[in-house]
Design a protein around this nucleic acid. Sequence first.
DNA 1: TCGTGCCTCACCCACCGGGGTGAGGGTGTC
DNA 2: GACACCCTCACCCCGGTGGGTGAGGCACGA
Lengths: 249, 249
Amino acid sequence: MIDDRMRGPGHGTTTVWVYDERRRVREDIASRLVALPFVGRVEAIGDAAALMSRLATRHPDVLLIGTQRAMDSGLTVATQALRAHPRLPVLVLGAPDDAETVRAAVSVGARGYLRWDATALEMGLGLSRVGLRVDGRTPQPANGHPVPLASVGAHVAAPAWNGATPLAGSAPTVVRAAVTREATPVSLSMREMQVLTGMSQGKSNAQIGRELYLSEDTIKTHARRLFRKLGAKDRAEAVATGFRRGMMT
Amino acid sequence: MIDDRMRGPGHGTTTVWVYDERRRVREDIASRLVALPFVGRVEAIGDAAALMSRLATRHPDVLLIGTQRAMDSGLTVATQALRAHPRLPVLVLGAPDDAETVRAAVSVGARGYLRWDATALEMGLGLSRVGLRVDGRTPQPANGHPVPLASVGAHVAAPAWNGATPLAGSAPTVVRAAVTREATPVSLSMREMQVLTGMSQGKSNAQIGRELYLSEDTIKTHARRLFRKLGAKDRAEAVATGFRRGMMT
DNA sequence: TCGTGCCTCACCCACCGGGGTGAGGGTGTC
DNA sequence: GACACCCTCACCCCGGTGGGTGAGGCACGA
């Protein structure tokens, strides 16, 4: 039930624990967390007693606790954990519009509320608003790449990074994830962009060539050039940086 | 100067013309437009006379006109074009916070204002708010994939798709791009997610295996399984759908 | 006018990627 | 107890990928 060996490639330093009685849920959440750049180790825990005993000796940087509508199991665990360790950064995880649980979570001392259908970006923000540490500091919008900006739950004030306006009221409105704008020092040519788009659709060089009425060798040349421009090793990384730089949809 | 042969792979039907005197600018914008799924043909035009004569016989679905701060060349062209063709959907392109040009653009009849540093998502919305047609209809948030949601310029009312609140005032605040939430029917396991993340960082299967203390063959197995789950042909497409589904950052 | 960047195409070549298949062990669920 | 899913590893195989290099033409700007 506890995945100690499940550690990431090491560039992330934050440790996150995910508690939920439903195995499916906690593992689903955990698997999405490992994709976040600043997250190093994720552990999924399904037993309340185990969680408490672990908390006696070690603390995660963030503890995620899942809840089910009209069941207070998750909230009970959150209450227990926070009673024993009041400064523990706890995020409650629940249904998209469960205002009741949001209120309950806040009242027992949770730092925030995360919808279970949150995107990676939103999870990232949820974590970053909750005492996450990267090399001892709170993460900043780094080197022009997207960074969590807004959203999680209404009761959490939206940050004002990058000039975005904070949430006005405290109504249970949920602001959706946003992306910081980057200096975009790279600009791809039209053809390179078309090739990159084709790649993102799983097309082979030959296929792209056929669709653009070009030779496959020409596509390979464009590919090489766009790899250099984007600093990418292969098409997968090129596509990824395309998305991260806001060039793709 | 006019790229008639520069047509996309055909799944997009919208035709966009980009006007700007600076070659660099118009081609940069054009190259970013071709990446949008619903955009079929993009033509970059650098000469005002040529633009007007082309407009006499054919109309694009959207006409983008670039402006420079403290120069009215672009606005002059926009004025000309709109005087001759009042129903032409024109978007003015300009500096991020050039409120003056925004006002001027609106007053001459432009349908919206697009920051030159807009992300693909934002451009998509700019286009979709401006009379874009896909098979005769305005595009909807389709099959669970991200879709332009907010932003372009303050004077354009933000759409209320997905329950997001429209822009409150008419102040020159700019709402950043947002992403719709999708039903996320696929869930990757922890390992699959780690492999996908490695792919997005340009790592080879062997490299990923080394970092996770696994055999390369194991990575290949995880890769195959995640390809099937995501419906992807190769790692590039897998990474792309990972981003489109909000699983990656 | 020369240089630069883009577009186009070609050839060579090492090797990585992806599909197929099988298989053992673990942990839950019905 | 059967079933399903995940994790792990292995072997075979072919085709696609990516790097290097060269080269001609075109449009532009210094």
